[in-house]
Amino acid sequence: MNATTTAVVAEQFDDIQQQHSAAKLGMWIFLATEVMFFGGLFLAYTVYRFTYGHVFALASRHLDDVFGGANTAVLLFSSLLMALAVRAAELDRRKQLVRLLLATALFGILFMTIKGFEYRKDFVEHLVPRFDFRWDGSDAANAELFFWIYFALTGLHAIHVTVGIALILVLALLARAGKFSPNFMPVEITGLYWHFVDIIWVFLFPLLYLAGHR
């Protein structure tokens, strides 16, 4: 986190190993924080799915599995690219590292683009609460609640994806300048973050898109 972009060991550390393991532990604890942050929303989802299970299932069927499924594939693949990038950084293959980071970011951007089209479709189909939300059938209010939670969860996730893309692009720039020659730690901890964002989506996809399937 505390960008240790040069190979020089920061003055508070004894050696590079200590610096590496500190950075990694810091990132893991930050991810624990993130789990709790998303946890509040997951709790809200759980409570209301438990209470209004039927309406939530009906509402869930209005979400587009194709968009959701494609995005799951895109994000999982970007995670693979990120893992390869970390490997390239460890092996000190600069050109490969830059390419892999750019590819990871590109797939992140692809995810956001698909998400954008999906939001547009949601809007056209009157699934956005408050913006001419329409629901034929009973319990319109509870269905609206489902879509609020859908937008809150995917919106919060999208913010995290955007931050991740920005971080990876910065890493790519630094990598091109050869900043990670002996010290690949920033690539590795950004990778951890990117995998975390991916895993959140892996939970979001079935909870939101597949809740209506039997």
Binding site: A44, P129, R130, D139, A141, N142, L145, W148, I149
Partner: peptide, 15 residues
């Protein structure tokens, strides 16, 4: 007006 704590949409202030 996100309804998570709003009884109008079935949300719960106790949450």
């Amino acid at each position: 007006g996100v309804g998570i704590f709003d009884p109008k949409l079935g949300g719960d202030p106790i949450l």
